[in-house]
Amino acid sequence: MSAAQVRPRRRPVLGVLLLAAGLAFGSGFVWFAHDALQPPGKPGQADGIVALTGGSGRIEVALSLLASGHAGRLLISGVNPSLDLARLAYASGLHVPAGVASGAISLGHAATTTTGNAEEAAAWARANKLHSLIVVTAGYHMRRALIEIGAALPGVRLAADPVLPPALLRPASFGTLRLLLTEYLKWLAVEIGHAATHPREIV
Rank of each mutant, 00 (worst) to 15 (best):
M1I: 14
S2V: 03
S2K: 10
A3N: 02
A3I: 05
A3Y: 08
A4Y: 12
V6D: 05
V6C: 00
V6H: 08
R7W: 13
R7Q: 13
R9Y: 11
P12D: 14
V13C: 02
V13W: 15
L14G: 00
L17Q: 07
L18C: 08
G22K: 11
G22I: 06
A24Y: 09
A24F: 10
A24N: 03
G26S: 06
G28R: 10
G28I: 03
V30I: 11
F32A: 02
A33C: 09
H34T: 13
D35G: 03
A36N: 00
A36P: 01
A36F: 03
L37N: 07
L37A: 06
L37M: 12
L37K: 06
P39F: 05
P43M: 10
G44M: 13
Q45N: 03
Q45L: 14
A46G: 01
I49N: 04
I49M: 07
L52V: 14
G54C: 08
G55W: 09
G57M: 07
I59N: 04
E60I: 04
E60F: 03
E60T: 05
A62F: 07
S64E: 14
L66K: 12
S68V: 07
A71P: 02
L74W: 10
S77W: 09
G78F: 06
V79G: 04
L83N: 13
L83D: 08
L83P: 01
L83F: 14
L85E: 12
R87E: 13
R87W: 05
A89C: 10
Y90F: 08
Y90C: 00
Y90S: 12
V96K: 12
P97C: 10
A98V: 10
A101T: 07
A101E: 15
S102E: 14
T115G: 15
G116K: 12
A118Q: 07
E119A: 04
E120Q: 06
A123C: 06
W124M: 08
A125R: 13
R126C: 03
R126L: 13
N128S: 14
N128R: 15
L130E: 05
L130G: 00
S132W: 11
V135D: 03
V136E: 09
V136T: 03
T137W: 11
T137V: 05
A138R: 11
Y140P: 04
H141Y: 09
R144V: 03
R144E: 02
L153T: 09
P154L: 05
P154E: 05
P154G: 00
R157E: 14
D161T: 12
V163H: 09
A167I: 14
L169C: 02
L169E: 12
R170Y: 05
R170A: 10
P171C: 11
L180W: 04
L181C: 04
L181V: 02
T182E: 00
E183N: 02
E183W: 01
K186D: 03
K186E: 02
A189Q: 12
V190D: 01
E191G: 05
G193C: 07
G193E: 05
G193R: 11
H194L: 15
H194F: 13
A195N: 02
A196I: 08
A196L: 12
T197H: 14
P199T: 03
E201N: 10
